[in-house]
Simulated scan of single mutants.
Amino acid sequence: MAMQTEIRLTGSGGQGLILAGIILAEAALLKGDNAIQSQSYGPEARGGASKAEVIISKEDIDFPKVREADIMLSLTQVALDKYVDTLKEDGILVIDSSIEVPSDLKAKKIVSIPMLNTASEVIGKSMVANIVALGAIQGLTDIVTKEYLEEAVLSRVPRGTEELNKRALQEGYNLVK
Rank of each mutant, 00 (worst) to 15 (best):
I61Y: 04
S74V: 02
T76A: 04
E53F: 11
V84P: 02
V78K: 14
D81G: 13
D90K: 06
L75A: 11
L73K: 05
E89H: 11
A69W: 00
F63A: 14
V78N: 14
F63E: 05
D70R: 06
L75W: 04
K82T: 14
S57P: 07
K58M: 10
R67K: 09
V54M: 03
Q77T: 04
S74Q: 06
L73Q: 06
Q77L: 09
K65C: 13
V84A: 08
L80Q: 02
E68G: 10
L73F: 06
V54D: 06
Q77H: 14
T76F: 03
V66I: 09
K58A: 14
V66S: 10
L73C: 05
D70C: 12
D81P: 02
V66N: 02
K58D: 08
V78G: 13
V84K: 08
A69T: 02
Y83P: 04
K88R: 08
I55H: 02
Y83H: 10
L87H: 00
K88S: 04
Y83W: 08
F63P: 02
D70A: 10
I56S: 14
K88I: 02
L75R: 01
V78S: 12
I71S: 06
V66D: 08
D62P: 01
E53C: 10
I61N: 07
S74F: 08
T76S: 09
K58P: 08
D90Y: 08
D85N: 15
L73P: 04
D90T: 06
